[in-house]
Amino acid sequence: MTGSVDKDDVARVWKLIDDIDVCMFTSHDGAKLRSRPMSSHARQSENAIYFLTDVEGHKDQEVAANSEVVLSYAKPGSGKFLAVTGRARVLDDRVLIKDLWDKDAEAFWEGADDPKVRVIEVVPDEAQFWEGPHGVVATVQMVIAAATAMPPVMGDQRKVDLR
């Protein structure tokens, strides 16, 4: 981890979360890790990433037993990847649930007042992003690197402190 916080990198992380939206939410299931895709609701002003979840799911118990989680974001074909580590907790905050409610949530619950709906709040500790060329540009760079015996220029990657 670098010593200082780069505000541009912090803003870049939050923008990547907004742009990609769906992540693989990884939590501890005892000694095992369990991942599942979830739609995130990022709020940089609150330093939190929120997820709507069901009280009957395993995530609630997993987060209660071990709050450390990893959120893995990737945008296919874009060359954009992001991993966020943080601490999670489950909330039964009806106002927040209504505020986060969207059309996607309607596929899973009767409405924002459904008593089974909960919120998982993740407060991020750090992130690492990778953004680089993709498609034809990446292929050309790989060919040039192979021909010149030089490593390819594959874009930016950095660790970012979000605390």
Rank of each mutant, 00 (worst) to 15 (best):
R158N: 15
G79H: 03
K98A: 13
T53A: 06
I49K: 10
D29C: 01
A65P: 00
D18C: 01
E62C: 01
V160I: 09
E110K: 13
G135R: 08
G77P: 00
T139C: 11
V122N: 08
P124M: 11
V119G: 03
S40D: 00
T85D: 01
P152E: 05
V117S: 01
G155W: 10
M142C: 12
K80Y: 13
A88L: 05
A65M: 01
P76N: 09
D18W: 06
I17V: 15
F81G: 08
L162D: 02
R87D: 02
G132M: 06
E106Q: 12
K75L: 14
A31N: 13
L82A: 03
L162I: 11
H41Q: 14
M142G: 15
D114I: 07
P115D: 02
R34Y: 14
D93Q: 06
W101L: 05
S45A: 15
V22I: 12
Q128F: 09
G77H: 03
V95N: 09
D9A: 15
T148E: 02
V136I: 15
T53I: 10
D18N: 10
V140S: 05
A48I: 07
A138K: 10
D29S: 03
Y50E: 07
T139S: 11
G77R: 04
F81R: 01
D18Y: 05
H41S: 10
V153K: 14
E131M: 14
N66Y: 10
V63C: 02
D6F: 09
I49E: 04
D156Y: 09
V13P: 02
K32A: 07
V160A: 05
T26Y: 07
F108W: 15
D113E: 13
G111I: 04
A145G: 13
Q141H: 13
D99A: 12
A31P: 14
H41M: 10
D102C: 12
K103V: 10
V84P: 08
S35H: 06
M150A: 14
S72E: 02
V136T: 14
F81K: 00
Y73M: 02
A65C: 00
I49C: 06
A107L: 13
R34Q: 11
A112L: 02
D8V: 14
A127S: 13
V5Q: 08
K103Y: 05
H134V: 11
G79E: 02
A146I: 10
A127Q: 11
P37D: 01
A138G: 05
S72A: 10
D29W: 07
V90Q: 01
D18A: 07
R158E: 15
Q61L: 09
G86H: 05
E110L: 08
R87W: 05
E68T: 12
D114G: 05
A149N: 14
L71P: 04
A11H: 09
L16S: 04
D104M: 15
G3L: 12
V137P: 12
P124S: 08
A65W: 01
G77L: 04
E121H: 10
D102M: 06
I120K: 04
V160L: 07
A107C: 04
I20S: 04
K75H: 10
Y50S: 06
I49N: 05
M24E: 03
D60W: 08
R43P: 00
M24K: 03
H134M: 12
R43E: 11
F25K: 01
H28I: 00
H28P: 00
R36P: 02
G30P: 03
H28V: 03
L96V: 04
A149V: 03
H58L: 11
K103I: 08
D19R: 08
D102R: 06
